[in-house]
Computed example of a mutant assay.
Amino acid sequence: MTKKIKLLWDFRGPDAKETAKHHTIHLKEFATLENLVFYKIDIQEKNEMLFSAFITVDERDMKTYRDALKPHRGEIA
């Protein structure tokens, strides 16, 4: 069984939620254009001024996503 990796992009400020939501559109577009597998794309709230957009991918695809999209951080899902 392969590990799942969650790649995250953090957005801060009063528009953080909307910016994170918009970023998920680009994550979906990239995955579709590159024919890459992903498990989940969504946002998560840390507080009202900090939201993260994320994509969960297989460990084998992580480098492709990482190198092209430059996430702020990653974690094992």
Rank of each mutant, 00 (worst) to 15 (best):
K21Q: 15
L8D: 09
M49I: 09
M62S: 14
K6T: 14
L69K: 03
R60K: 13
Q44T: 14
I41V: 14
T24M: 08
A77F: 10
E45R: 07
K63C: 10
H26C: 10
T24A: 11
L8G: 05
T24H: 09
G13V: 00
R60V: 12
L7W: 03
L27T: 00
D61H: 03
I41Y: 05
T32C: 04
E59D: 14
T2A: 11
L8H: 08
R73I: 05
S52F: 02
T24Q: 10
L33H: 13
L50M: 05
E48W: 01
R60H: 10
A68Y: 02
I5V: 14
K28Y: 12
N35I: 09
V37H: 13
V37D: 15
M49N: 12
H26K: 12
A53W: 00
M62E: 15
D15E: 10
K46M: 08
F54A: 06
L27C: 04
F51H: 04
K40S: 14
F30W: 02
A53G: 05
K6I: 10
L33M: 12
A16G: 01
E34A: 09
D58K: 08
F51M: 05
A20V: 02
T32S: 13
F54W: 07
I76E: 15
I5R: 06
W9S: 05
F30Q: 03
H72E: 11
D67Q: 09
V37C: 11
V57K: 01
H23F: 13
G13W: 00
R12C: 11
K3F: 07
F11S: 02
K46G: 08
K3Y: 09
H22I: 12
H72G: 14
T24D: 11
K70C: 07
M49T: 10
Q44E: 15
D10C: 09
D61K: 00
I25W: 11
F51G: 01
R66P: 01
P14A: 13
I76S: 15
L36V: 03
E75L: 11
E48P: 00
D61E: 08
A68M: 08
D61S: 06
I55N: 01
I25N: 15
A53H: 01
M1N: 12
D42P: 01
F38K: 01
A20M: 02
E45Q: 08
L7E: 11
L7K: 05
K70N: 10
K21M: 14
N47V: 03
T19V: 13
E59C: 07
Y65V: 02
F30K: 00
T64G: 02
F51N: 01
R60I: 12
Y65H: 04
D58G: 03
E18V: 05
E45P: 00
A16S: 13
Y65N: 02
F30P: 02
D15Q: 10
Y65S: 02
Y39K: 11
H23P: 03
N47E: 05
K70L: 09
D67Y: 04
R73G: 15
N35H: 13
G13M: 00
F11E: 05
V37I: 14
K63I: 13
A16D: 02
L27Y: 00
F11H: 06
I43V: 11
Q44K: 13
P14G: 09
R73C: 12
W9A: 05
T32G: 06
E59G: 06
D67N: 12
